[in-house]
């Protein structure tokens, strides 16, 4: 049976994990490699690194970090944030990333999806959608959630699937940070319209939220950040709950 995946997300700025971290076991708080190792030990199925550094030196440091992670982590990991062209993708994959997550650049230049999928294989290309409900319409936002493109999330999901994306990382901006659970309706809508895995993101607070998004939202994977960073729960505990509720997970 294919297990449902749980993916912790680490926001990286200047090679440090940002957004509150509360891991006493980690010597240098905010060290992405140490945090990644602890998630790896806690049975994370995959890791997502989102680089939010804005500096000029960004690429070079990110590549060094990716190399360091791949020497220490023996589970798949994705890298996203500010990926603009084929060269960025190639450099990160060559440094050890398993998948690349693309958001704004895919909207600005949809052909990038086709080109990247063809060059590196669909399975390495994750298209990230930041989605907000605007008067009943699910709209795609870019530029870190600052810009409303007005594009319908469902039709954009279908398009990225048809262009060769391997997975969709679907973040509900309405639920993100609320701890009220994943956006089941949105997740289900997207999952029903594509034949690739959908990773639900935004709103997780407890194990039940994961159960719901897997059962009712038909997500293949679910992503969370703060509940893991703040140690409100841990992955092993969520997985034990899911398994006892009949959901296949890797334990």
């Amino acid at each position: 049976m294919l297990a449902k995946r749980i993916i912790p997300c680490l926001d990286i700025k200047d090679n440090k994990v940002v957004k509150g971290i509360n891991f006493e076991s980690i010597k240098s708080a905010g060290d992405p490699v140490e945090l990644a190792i602890s998630y790896n030990d806690d049975l994370a199925d995959e890791l997502m690194f989102l680089d939010i550094t804005a500096s000029f030196e960004k690429r070079k440091t990110l590549i060094e970090l990716v190399k360091e992670i791949s020497k220490n982590i023996f589970i798949p990991f994705s890298v996203g944030g500010g990926i603009s062209d084929i060269n960025d993708i190639r450099n990160l994959l060559n440094s050890g990333a398993d998948k690349i997550s693309i958001n704004t650049s895919a909207v600005l230049n949809p052909d990038l999806i086709d080109e990247a999928a063809k060059k590196f294989g669909s399975s390495t290309i994750v298209i990230a959608l930041d989605v907000k409900n605007m008067d009943g319409k699910y709209c795609v936002f870019t530029h870190g959630g600052r810009k409303n493109t007005g594009i319908d999330a469902i039709s954009w999901s279908k398009e990225v699937y048809n262009r060769g994306a391997g997975e969709i990382l679907l973040t509900s901006m309405d639920m993100d940070g609320t701890k009220k659970g994943f956006d089941i309706k949105l997740t289900n809508l997207v999952a029903q319209n594509v034949k690739i895995p959908v990773i639900a993101s935004g709103g997780a607070s407890c194990a039940k939220d994961f159960e719901d998004v897997f059962n009712e939202g038909h997500a293949s994977a679910a992503l969370a950040a703060s509940i893991f960073h703040y140690k409100e729960t841990n992955i092993t505990a969520i997985k034990s709950y899911l398994r006892s509720h009949g959901i296949d997970v890797r334990i």
Binding site: M1, L2, A3, R5, D45, G166, K195, P197
Partner: peptide, 15 residues
Amino acid sequence: NENFVPIIPHIGWND
């Protein structure tokens, strides 16, 4: 077989 495998590629942890 796309006729009865709903999600392709097969991505993730399988026993």
